[in-house]
Amino acid sequence: MKIWCPRCNQGWVTGAQIKSTNERVSVCEECEAAWANEKSINFETFVDMSTMLKAKGLSGNWSDLLVDKEQGS
């Protein structure tokens, strides 16, 4: 289910998989707010995508992710 971003109110939150770990995440394509738990997507629980990915030793860029094709704006 597509969710309008509760942080920026300007884009859709899309599902994605971290390539190196296969972990599922949800990310706003507009503001790069990210959530590790897709069942808890709200303003209070977002983290910055690059911050989340760099904490895992990754580049922090979209290239770290495989974005779900069926979602997004």
Binding site: C8, E30, C31
Partner: peptide
């Protein structure tokens, strides 16, 4: 204007 930056930087993620 709402500016969204990378935390702790002046790097723009979005603005609208």
């Amino acid at each position: 204007v709402r500016l969204i930056l990378r935390p702790g930087t002046t790097e723009v993620i979005s603005a609208y």
